[in-house]
């Protein structure tokens, strides 16, 4: 009897359960504050916004899981650049979708590769390497935008992101679901996934066991760049046309989504399912604060304060006198 209550208590404390509980609570709160908040169409819209953040957070999650202070501050730059590149290549025509996807993925992979090489070959701390890369990407954004002022999303892409595809659910959400399944399968069922956790929790031990840690870390940064590129591509579909620095907000919110999902910033512990809940929670919170119809000042204050309270639920460090 005592054992089973312990098990229940343990489950109730896992970040995923906490996040899911909070999501339900926030939906109920939103519905009470403004009837219609938790309607199906509203939830779909929320999930579209959450899915874009969630895709960025997938890459961020991988880099963080790989440990050695892994973090990718350049994701925001890749998101912006990818949105502009995609818009410029499509110019509102469906024929441009495939080349645009290829160009975006190649861009993301390229900058991810540079980050990964800097972190592994030159052993630059990830925070510094990706911070510097963010500056380069923002500069490149100015160059690309000056060439062609603004691009347009292809109708097919806009439809995929915002309109129902199957069973009334937009394609974007299906895509996110598929990424969720693939991420879980990759992390929990493949050799690559095992190795990610191995280098994240104890890199030296993993190296001695023959794990090619550097190669894996480069792959993680490339994944991060490509996920950010996919997100930028989808943002273009969501907003219709590319505008300046749309990705900036994703830099730190992707990290917050990962942390709220229960992945430790020190690496080697966590997974993507929690991060998906974390991203949804974050978007839901912002949406409720918008619904409350208070001024920008109060909204920011409440958002910051709520984040701090949420972090108290999990991710607290150990006391020194342990």
């Amino acid at each position: 009897m005592k054992n089973s209550t312990n098990v229940v208590a343990e489950i109730a404390k896992t970040p995923l359960v906490v996040a899911l509980g909070l999501i339900v609570a926030l939906l109920v709160l939103g519905e009470l504050l403004s009837p219609g908040f938790a309607s199906l169409s509203q939830i779909m819209r929320l999930l579209i916004v959450a899915s874009i953040l969630g895709v960025v957070a997938a890459g961020q999650n991988l880099v963080i899981l790989g440990g050695r202070e892994g973090i990718d501050l350049s994701v925001g730059g890749v998101v912006s650049l990818s949105a502009v590149v995609a818009g410029n290549m499509m110019q509102g025509s469906d024929a441009g979708i495939i080349p645009a996807i290829i160009a975006c993925l190649a861009t993301g992979a390229f900058f991810g590769l540079l980050n990964g090489l800097g972190v592994t070959l030159l052993r630059i701390p990830p925070l510094i390497m990706t911070l510097g890369m963010l500056g380069v990407l923002q500069g490149l954004l100015v160059v690309v935008r000056n060439g062609i002022p603004s691009g347009l999303a292809a109708p097919g892409l806009a439809h995929f992101v915002t309109q129902p595809l199957m069973f009334g659910v937009p394609g974007m959400i299906w895509l996110w679901g598929a990424i969720g399944v693939l991420m879980a399968a990759m992390l929990k069922r493949t050799l690559f996934g095992y190795r990610v956790y191995a280098i994240g929790s104890n890199e030296n031990a993993a190296r001695m066991a023959g794990v090619p840690a550097d190669l894996i870390r480069v792959c993680l940064f490339m994944f991060s760049g490509m996920f950010a590129a996919v997100a930028g591509f989808c943002i273009l579909g969501y907003s219709g046309s590319s505008f300046s620095n749309v990705g900036a907000q994703y830099m730190l919110s992707s990290i917050i989504a990962v942390v709220l999902g229960g992945t430790s910033l020190s690496g080697g512990k966590g997974g993507y399912t929690g991060t998906m809940a974390g991203a949804t929670l974050l978007v839901l919170l912002q949406s409720i604060l918008t619904t409350l119809n208070i001024e920008e000042a109060g909204r920011q204050f409440a958002f910051g304060a709520t984040l701090l309270v949420l972090m108290l639920f999990y991710g607290r460090g150990k006391a020194l006198r342990g």
Partner: peptide, 11 residues
């Protein structure tokens, strides 16, 4: 409160 400085100071 023992929060991680990167995310806590962002908040």
């Amino acid at each position: 409160l023992r929060l991680q400085p990167i995310v806590a100071t962002f908040a």
